[in-house]
Amino acid sequence: MIDAKRRILLKGSLAAGAVGMAIGAGLLTPRLVLAAWPEAAFNAQNVDDALKGLLGSAAHEPSDKIDLKAPDIAENGAVVPVTVETTLEGASSITLVAAGNMMPLIASFELGKGALPFISTRIKMGKTANLIALVKAGDKVYSASREVKVTVGGC
């Protein structure tokens, strides 16, 4: 019993020490530690790396139960309206990726209690490319994508 407690204490202090060292070394700011903003996923420069960093895997299955609305032609890439809605059962998160952007991961939303699987926002697109909406439902990730032609890039 005493030994078990000692183990926990030891583990706890080690973990705290590691985080403290990371903060001290400037690797992590306390803000980022608290906010849980997945830096690697957001800094990734291709879709697969971004999804691996965010969801743990780049695998996703196309689904016609995801309705992704965006203009066919976006004259101004700085403001592209996007709406995602799904009828997939048990949807827990919605993620937006612009495949042609230097950093493709745009935004990800966790749906809390009572939230309907619907998100509408406005994003930047650097050039004509696929816009991908990913919905996590259960253990699987489903997707819908459509090409948006961008007249003037907005990144």
Binding site: A36, P38, M103, I106, A107, F109
Partner: peptide, 9 residues
């Protein structure tokens, strides 16, 4: 809850 990049307008 949302996590965003600078890719949001």
């Amino acid at each position: 809850t949302g996590i965003w990049s600078g890719g949001v307008s």
